[in-house]
Design a protein around this nucleic acid. Structure first.
Length: 427
RNA sequence: GGAGAGGUGGCCGAGAGGUCGAAGGCAGCCGCCUGCUAAGCGGUUGUGGGGCUAACACCCCACCCAGGGUUCGAAUCCCUGCCUCUCCGCCA
């Protein structure tokens, strides 16, 4: 959420930001009008409340002196009734203003390249050698089915489309990747491992920006009055760990890493990646989340991205890093790097991690603040997160990049202690 | 699922319809005193919003888990929800 004061006082900046994102800046008009009304009404209500307070105090004093306050009572009653009335309309204005401001996207950082869609994204670096094959490389779903480690058909029977049943070395590989990534991040990189709830309430979803705008992407538990949602990413529960809290300056930065399953409706992506592990309703992910001081957030974004890249480096998977342009930037993000891994069967890079700095956009929504030593008041922390990495996509990329002509798949060195084997073979 | 207890400032803890943003203690900050460590003494220290400012100061409003209600007036009374604790039952 943007600061209403900024929208009010630095409207031009917000208009520019919306334009850069390709959004219609005229949506601000209604908000500004509402906000003006809201403040006027607030002044009215506060003025009345003051009058009431003065009268009430007077009444109290008279009572104490044993005199009758009946003359004042009538007036006080009248003012009280009026307050109730005006408060009603103030509440309505507040609700409307909040609704409008919650759907405004974040302001892109000045370093974000201009562009209107993903064609405007800028490649920042490229690492690893693309594999060369003396045969026609297969798609990961064919490799997985031939090795009998991925069973999409039976998953379809159990749950439906966009689910997968992992078996034998496939299931073990999934687990190995989770453990490898968590071990890596909790090592030198210094992240603390957390394992959060994967069902969360509405406030949490609003805190990180999934609600109110993107409800159709979420699975909702409908037969329970708590109205919980399945998380689409660990970002939600982990960022909300500190919702409504004030941290001490010395506690920052906080680095968390979490493995969780993730659940997405994938509404509106019919026909996209219908085969394979790329787009599933349920998938595993190891997430990186940081809470930092504002002045550090952009160096923290660089290091967080490097932490995610390290996984691919150690696995030996070729990848590139892309800076998303203003038109492709996510709703809550001020700046995002996508990490994309090479898929030989598709002869292209596909997103495997998205590392973002949200600045104070999420922390303002979620009310996560910190206090500087010796300074008055509080400030919002900056939050960041990135996948480190999406497990299913990593597994898919490994199958494709490390496939052999005989249909087997070589396990990279770093995973062998987890897999207890060097190779996945048929049978 | 059943029966109780409770949620107050950074922490502990009073309060019980009026002058309570909230006693007291601890912690923190400022100063004094003391030639050791320590102790002692005085003062001070919440958050958000609005107004006015170049800014500070200042003024006002709100906040004692959350949301409603009663009342001229609620931390205090009533209702609902959430959370925590104890006991019983059930359960991976």
């Amino acid at each position: 959420m943007l600061d209403i004061k900024i929208v009010r006082e630095k409207t031009q900046i917000v208009i520019e930001a919306l334009k850069k994102r390709g959004s219609d800046a005229s949506i601000l008009d209604g908000l500004l009008r509402l906000e003006a009304k809201r403040r006027a009404q607030l002044a009215v209500v506060e003025e009345l409340r003051q009058q009431r307070n003065v009268l009430s105090e007077e009444i109290g004093k008279l009572r104490k002196q044993g005199e009758s306050p009946s003359a004042l009572l009538e007036n006080a009653k009248k003012i009280s009734d009026e307050i109730a009335l005006k408060e009603q309309s103030l509440r309505e204005l507040e609700t409307q203003t909040l609704q409008e401001i919650l759907v405004l996207p974040n302001i892109p950082h000045e370093s974000v390249p201009l562009g209107k869609d993903d064609t405007g994204n800028v490649e920042v670096r490229k690492r690893g050698r693309l594999p060369e094959f003396s045969f026609q490389p297969k798609a990961h779903w064919d490799i997985g089915e031939d090795l009998k480690i991925l069973d999409f058909e039976r998953a379809g029977k159990i749950a439906g489309a966009r689910f997968c049943l992992y078996k034998g070395p496939g299931a073990r590989l999934e687990r190995s990747l989770i453990n490898f990534m968590l071990d890596l991040h909790t090592g030198e990189a210094g992240y603390t491992e957390v394992f959060p709830p994967v069902l969360v309430n509405k406030d949490s979803m609003t805190g990180t920006g999934q609600l109110p705008k993107f409800e159709e992407d979420l699975f909702k538990i409908g037969n329970d009055e708590r109205n919980l949602f399945l998380i689409p990413t660990a970002e939600v529960p982990v960022t909300n760990i500190f919702r409504g809290e004030i941290l001490n300056e010395e506690e920052l930065p906080v680095y968390y890493t979490a493995y969780t399953p993730c659940f997405r409706r994938e509404a509106g992506s019919y026909g996209k990646d219908t085969k394979g592990l790329i787009r599933q309703h349920q998938f595993n992910k190891v997430e990186l989340v940081k809470f930092v001081k504002p002045e550090d957030s952009y160096t923290e974004l660089e290091s967080l991205t490097l932490n995610a890249e390290e996984v691919l480096k150690r696995l030996g998977l070729p990848y590139r890093v892309v800076a998303l342009c203003t038109g492709d930037l996510g709703f809550s993000s001020a700046k995002t790097y996508d990490i994309e891994v090479w898929f030989p069967s598709q002869e292209r890079y596909r997103e495997i991690s998205s590392c973002s700095n949200f600045e104070d956009f999420q922390s303002r929504r979620a009310d996560i603040r910190f206090k500087r030593k010796g300074k008055k008041g509080t400030e919002f922390v900056h939050t960041l997160n990135g996948s480190g990495l999406a497990i299913g996509r990593t597994l898919a990329a490994m199958l494709e990049n490390f496939q052999q002509e005989d249909g087997s798949v070589i396990i990279p060195e770093v995973l062998r202690p987890y897999m207890k084997s060097e190779k996945i073979v048929k049978g």
